[in-house]
Nucleic acid binder design. Sequence first.
DNA 1: GATAATTCCTAGTAATACGATATGGAATAG
DNA 2: CTATTCCATATCGTATTACTAGGAATTATC
Lengths: 150, 150
Amino acid sequence: MSNLKTSLKIGLQILSVLARSESRPVSVRELALELGQSEKYLEQLLLPLRHARLVTSLRGPHGGYHLSRPPSHIALLEILELMQGPVTFCDCPSRQCAECVSPAMWQTLEACMETSMAHVTLADVMTMRPPKLPARVGLSPVWVENGLGI
Amino acid sequence: MSNLKTSLKIGLQILSVLARSESRPVSVRELALELGQSEKYLEQLLLPLRHARLVTSLRGPHGGYHLSRPPSHIALLEILELMQGPVTFCDCPSRQCAECVSPAMWQTLEACMETSMAHVTLADVMTMRPPKLPARVGLSPVWVENGLGI
DNA sequence: GATAATTCCTAGTAATACGATATGGAATAG
DNA sequence: CTATTCCATATCGTATTACTAGGAATTATC
């Protein structure tokens, strides 16, 4: 079973299509044809993307959606949080519940994921390249030199 | 919503209890009392732990479960994979499906999580301390010095 | 204006996963 | 003989998720 929601995966596909046709807006109908999903479903997924101003919409004939920013300025973390919620390993507010066992542990691991994904951009996703990451990222995990061109 | 299953969290609680009473085996009944869960439920959770030889069982009177290894030699990753399945962001076998968008991306992120959790031990979890991690871990993410005693 | 293309919004339904419980008994060992 | 693990299955409730549906609002074009 995948740990990622379908909505995130399709959301990424949507954004990829929008990124490829920078110039003109893409209608939901076109997206539906290209991605093999229903228009209504894609509409729903576009809603949060628009509210977060990741995409901009144009109504009326020849309307559609386009990216609000260049793909290299859209972090995977943003998309992930929009489409499948925050990266939380335990969501008790106090971080002191029995389930927490070790709050510091979960927080560290959450930060690990977040920092990593904050440095991956839509451009990286599209080009199928491993992401460009700095050698070190704050106090959190980083990709290090790995012979893959980073 | 938490991204971790309850079974993992309770699994960790079980292992913590076992770790604290190293010397003698702990029966399911005792676990049930201590953790406030039904015996049958805990039995179910203990099954995969035993099959993976993380815990050893003794039958008959005064029987019960104990850890097969010291807590410092049980990686969080093992527990996680046993209790809530592998860390997979896309589970198509080919890694070439439409949902993949960027197989290299998911693989890198999966490796990030896995490597991080592979270096966290049950001992870390129990002591509520941030994990001890080497300054660098292969080609994957690491925790770096962060003033928390690592 | 009228019309048609499109986004926008709100609900609702259907399928699935998951947590949790329940039952019943076989095997094992003090 | 009794306490316990072991194992299988199945069931139920609920939360989440995927997906559908209908129609209001907006805008370009004729």
